[in-house]
């Protein structure tokens, strides 16, 4: 135990801080030749916006929100943005991380260099958040183009998307350190789909039975959806800080658990 902690703790003074960025550099290099894969990641929320937001939106009309009536597509777009931030971050820190360490042995090669396990984990999380920031910026611009963003508070939409990404990156990475084989990732799917569908993403909390409402108020994506929706529609309240704190704590705790376990995982 002490030997492992030692190898993670003491790093040469020079350049140690830049090391996680080498992971980002590596990922940029990998995507340079497969830019179309990167690009395709942007389509998913946009397609949902067109189909559910606009298509089904015509059947739904306007919804009461915080005392006003809002268009359904305006209601659903921030939810889609929050879900996309969760999705991308979780996939990067679970499936993609697992494939790289277990099957392509990408990290084995990297850990033979001055980069350590902490650098690899930090670098991958930073990369996931950067990717999330790019996608959410693109989606926000799409929303603006569709005239779905009435408030200047929306400037905070991307930082909050990164916060959502941070929360799920922590949870994802911590979870991955417990995975034994890819069959275990069924649990990730099991978590992703219900969160996506039932975090007040597509319909307001009032549609649920009272008992379920209380449960949903406690789930993680719900916090992100509430935040993004408030920012896009400009309905700011102090209670939003509670939702933001929830996400920050979730990410911090997850990364703490992951940091304790990831050394043993990557360097048995």
């Amino acid at each position: 135990m002490s030997a492992r902690m030692g190898s993670m703790r003491v790093l040469p003074p020079l350049g140690a801080r830049q090391r996680p960025w080498r992971m980002v550099e590596r990922n940029v290099l990998a995507y340079r030749r497969t830019w179309y894969v990167f690009l395709s990641g942007f389509f998913e929320p946009v397609l949902f916006l067109l189909s559910i937001g606009i298509g089904v939106g015509k059947l739904v009309g306007k919804l009461p929100f915080d005392g006003h009536l809002v268009d359904y597509k305006q209601f659903v777009a921030p939810g889609l943005l929050a879900s996309a931030a969760m999705n991308g971050s979780l996939l990067d820190t679970t499936f993609n991380f697992f494939v790289k360490y277990k099957y392509s042995h990408t990290y084995d090669a990297i850990l033979a260099t001055p980069l350590g396990t902490g650098d690899v984990a930090t670098g991958e999380v930073v990369w996931a958040l950067m990717r999330g920031a790019i996608y959410s910026t693109a989606f926000l611009l799409t929303m603006v183009a569709f005239g779905l963003v009435p408030s200047w508070w929306a400037l905070l939409v991307v930082p909050v998307a990164v916060l959502i990404g941070f929360a799920f990156a922590g949870a994802g990475l911590a979870g991955t350190t417990f995975m034994r084989s890819w069959v275990d990732f069924d649990y990730v799917t099991l978590a992703l789909v219900p969160l996506f569908l039932f975090s007040a993403t597509f319909f307001p909390l009032s549609q649920y039975p009272a008992g379920l409402q209380a449960v949903i108020r406690l789930t993680p994506l719900y916090q992100g959806v509430v935040l993004e929706r408030a920012l896009v529609l400009g309905h700011m309240q102090w209670t939003l800080l509670v939702h933001a704190a929830y996400l920050a704590v979730m990410g911090a705790v997850g990364l703490r658990v992951a940091a304790r376990r990831i050394g043993r995982l990557l360097q048995p």
Binding site: L59, K62, L63, Y72, L197, F203, Q207
Partner: peptide, 19 residues
């Protein structure tokens, strides 16, 4: 089935109220 519950029941409730 989760999609059916979310879309059919949840979203369906909104559609029912409107159209």
């Amino acid at each position: 089935l989760l999609f059916l519950a979310a879309m059919g029941l949840g979203l369906g409730g909104l559609v029912k109220a409107h159209t």
